[in-house]
Design a protein around this nucleic acid. Structure first.
Length: 570
DNA sequence: TAGTTCCATCAGTACGCGGC
DNA sequence: GCCGCGTACTGATGGAACTA
């Protein structure tokens, strides 16, 4: 596979350019090493989750397979209602088996479409073929209209519907009163039919039991998986170890933990589960809303429509103005009506700015007291002068940055460089989240969460636009992170291929909406940068040549786990 | 219309430097 | 040594683009 040839399509195109790279040799070598090789096999088209987890039917599969054997409104959730399930099963079996004992005339009325039984391989396909085909079930509505319904057959059992008495088993010894009973040969056929019918019903019950058992097992596995995710989710919030056997890197930043939580939420969503907000997320929302309100308040005091006029509207005070302010002449004042900030002088030590700061705080408190935010009140603990002051100070730092940019605009090169850097950082974040997602979503990859617990977005390799301009669809040239070993790179690219596979054909639905994941390729011209090496990884995660260049104390600080990590991707 | 990726921009944090 | 400021780095956020 082409390295992160995240799309299979890039394999061929990049193979030539990648030929000289060491990474390719690893990637290419993988298929020859067999399935048990330590490096992941990535030569095949990106594996989908379906392929990787085909041994056990997923809940989506289970429920869809079930659709062929139980009424359509039935779902996994129905498992909680045994009584209902039993009734639905009985209805289904009775309906399904009915055609086998229908009078010839009735069978002519409802022949299987195309005369053949065409089915997809489902649980049901393992059953004896005496049941109805999937195509006959498709006509269920019409069949119910034309042929006896389940309810009709139930009535037959009670002997209330005379025209079914020859085909419907009854537990009452009725042959003594049945005219045809007197012709013993007919009775024998009836008995034979009954025996066959009972045998079929028993077999159906056994099959249904198997289906339910499998479904319960699938459901149980799903619940276990979700429980694991929830546990990890909570763990991310509390930053406590799940167990001694799962060492977790403590150095993850708050924002990375937030990103991890979002990934967990997306994983749960892909399984049809909505996770409740954690305490940390609730607190963050409150804090963010508070900060946003303070910012808007300051923005209103400055009477700004947008940031573009900040420096023009608020030039620094002249020496004369400063002197006048100090003397209290009243020519230069800072009031809510004539609010002003001097972005050249210090924010917390320049008297004029100190007064401006106090005005922001007091007017915001007055705004709160007037009931401006009563719809979604701000907690009392955030209404202190200190808390409001902190929020103001943070925003002033941003405003000062904006001011300086307007007074001394950066050069185009500097702007371009900053934009490229920001874009690459964002892509690293996207890469991290997508890798986290597939690790958490695909059961067979779950064990690699141990590795990802020690990684952050800034540990991912970067990339840059391949070529002078962005084309559609754009190609991104990988920037290698020097600290990563070849095995780790190959593993990460294999994970990327998995994600592409999942994105292209998510289980139970069509291709994912939205832009495709970016295509990343390795070129001969690909740059190598030192990158940010995480601590606590296994020794085969780090590049030996890179380690050899490090000082002893630097290597020690990495706290390398003295074991090899098993990068196998199945 | 919804969900995803991308980019540009905003915002928080850490660190270095200089003045006091 | 402390404090304020500037800078760089990093992640979050919002809107555009895109597609099912």
């Amino acid at each position: 596979m082409a390295p992160p040839a995240q799309h299979g399509a890039t394999h061929a195109g990049s193979s030539k350019s990648v030929a000289g790279s060491m990474a390719l040799s690893v990637v290419r070598a993988a298929p020859r090493q067999g399935p048990n090789a330590p490096t992941p096999s990535t030569s095949a088209p990106p594996l989908t989750e379906q392929a990787s987890t085909s041994a056990t039917p997923r809940p989506e599969q289970a429920s869809s397979n079930f659709a062929g054997s139980v009424p359509k409104h039935w779902s996994l959730s129905s498992l909680s209602s045994d009584g209902d399930l039993g009734l639905q099963m009985f209805e289904d079996i009775a309906e399904r088996d009915a055609p086998s004992v229908q009078p010839a005339e009735s069978q002519k009325k409802n022949p299987p479409r195309n005369g053949v039984v065409s089915r997809t391989p489902t649980f049901r396909s393992q059953r004896p073929t005496h049941g109805p085909s999937a195509t006959t079930r498709k006509d269920k509505g019409k069949q119910r209209a034309d042929a006896p319904t389940v309810e009709d057959e139930s009535m037959d059992c009670s002997g209330e519907d005379a025209h079914h008495d020859s085909s419907t088993p009854s537990w009452q010894p009725s042959y003594e009163n049945n005219p045809r009973d007197q012709a013993g040969q007919i009775n024998a056929e009836v008995v034979l039919l009954l025996l066959q019918q009972m045998s079929g019903v028993q077999a159906s019950f056994r099959e249904q039991a198997e289906v339910i058992k499998e479904s319960l097992e699938t459901n149980k596995q799903l619940q276990e998986l979700l429980a694991q995710h929830l546990k990890r989710f909570e763990h991310n919030v509390t930053d406590e170890d799940v167990s001694p056997s799962t060492p977790v890197r403590k150095g993850k930043t708050t924002s990375t933990r937030v990103a991890d939580m979002k990934v967990q939420r997306r994983v749960a969503q892909s399984m049809g589960v909505t996770m409740p907000l954690t305490a940390e997320e609730k607190e963050r929302r409150i804090q963010n809303r508070f900060t946003e309100r303070v910012h808007k308040h300051l923005y209103a005091l400055l009477r700004l429509k947008d940031m573009s006029t900040l420096a023009k509207r608020y030039p620094p005070l002249t020496d004369e103005e400063i002197e006048s302010y100090k003397n209290g002449e009243g020519n230069v004042v800072c009031t809510p009506e004539k609010f002003r900030i001097d972005f050249e002088h210090p924010w917390k030590k320049f008297a004029f700015n100190m007064e401006a700061r106090a005005i922001v705080i007091e007017t915001f408190r007055a705004k709160v007291r007037s009931g401006a935010f009563d719809a979604e009140p701000i907690p009392e603990r955030l209404l202190t002068k200190e808390a409001i002051g902190d929020a103001v100070d943070q925003y002033i730092a941003t405003l000062r940055r904006t001011y300086r940019k307007q007074v001394e605009p950066p050069t185009k090169d500097a702007t371009d460089k900053a934009q490229r850097t920001a874009a690459m950082t964002t892509r690293q974040g996207t890469l991290y989240r997508s890798r986290q997602f597939i690790i958490n979503r695909v059961r067979g990859l779950a064990r690699h969460s141990l590795l990802f617990d020690r990684l952050s977005a800034n540990n991912m390799s970067g990339d840059e636009t391949d070529g002078d301009s962005v084309k559609h669809s754009p190609l991104y040239r990988i920037i290698l992170a020097e600290w990563q070993s070849l095995e780790l790179r190959a593993f990460l690219w294999a994970i990327d291929a998995k994600y592409i596979g999942y994105w292209a054909s998510p289980p139970g639905s069509r291709r994912s909406k939205g832009n495709p994941p970016r295509k990343r390729i390795l070129r001969d011209s690909s740059r190598t940068v030192p990158g940010v090496a995480p601590t606590g990884l296994w020794r085969n995660c780090y590049n030996e040549a890179w380690l050899a260049k490090k000082q002893d104390w630097e290597v020690e600080a990495l706290e390398i786990t003295p074991e090899d990590y098993d990068f196998t991707v199945v």
